[in-house]
């Protein structure tokens, strides 16, 4: 089944590899993954859609939560959350179709972000099913190329972020410099 995982991770080299490693090591295919900085530039938010054995969903979240660089991993598959995807479509079209394409785009709340004599680049956002439908419609008008962002999600019931406090190392204070 497709599991949607939202993660707050430290923005550090290798952090992404650690998270995807947990999934790849179990043979789970990642359907989509987005990462970007949060308001705090030291942290990133990841949204991952991954095909997981239903019995292993809880285990996957626990294993990801164990990673030192992960501050919080949340399963948003069933949780109240907003899930959206951004789609960019470049469509080549004949002159006579141009107006129709723009009308079709309008129905999906999409807009043209670039226009040339050969066609348009259209931008749409929405849930995945709606984006599938949008692509199917536009496809009929000519050659298209599609780039999808993958699912991004925000939880509607933010969990309180539990963080580990600094751990004092008294034995490090006590000792003198001894290398000499």
């Amino acid at each position: 089944m497709l599991q949607l995982i939202s993660l707050l991770v430290e923005n550090k080299p290798g952090a992404l590899m650690r998270v995807t490693g947990v999934l790849a090591a179990r043979g789970y295919n990642i359907e989509s993954l987005t990462v970007a900085r949060t308001l705090d530039p030291e942290l990133s938010r990841m949204s991952i859609t991954v095909d997981v054995e239903p019995s292993q969903c809880a285990q996957v979240i626990k294993q990801i939560n164990k990673l030192i660089n992960v501050l919080q991993a949340t399963d948003l598959t069933e949780a109240p959350a907003v899930r959206r995807e951004l789609v960019l479509v470049r469509v080549r079209s004949a002159k006579e179709d141009r107006t129709t394409i723009l009308k079709e785009a309008d129905i999906f709340g999409a807009r043209a972000v670039e226009s040339s004599v050969d066609g348009f680049a259209l931008e749409a956002t929405g849930d995945s099913e709606k984006m599938d439908a949008f692509i199917r419609v536009i496809e009929r008008y000519g050659d298209i190329e599609v780039t999808r962002s993958g699912m991004v999600a925000v939880s509607m019931e933010p969990k309180k972020l539990k963080l580990a406090p600094p751990v004092r190392k008294e034995y490090l204070e006590a000792q003198e410099v001894t290398t000499e």
């Binding site: 030192i68 580990a164 490090l172």
Partner: peptide, 9 residues
């Protein structure tokens, strides 16, 4: 004198 790993709980 201290170690701070906020994600290591």
């Amino acid at each position: 004198t201290s170690v701070h790993l906020p994600g290591y709980k």
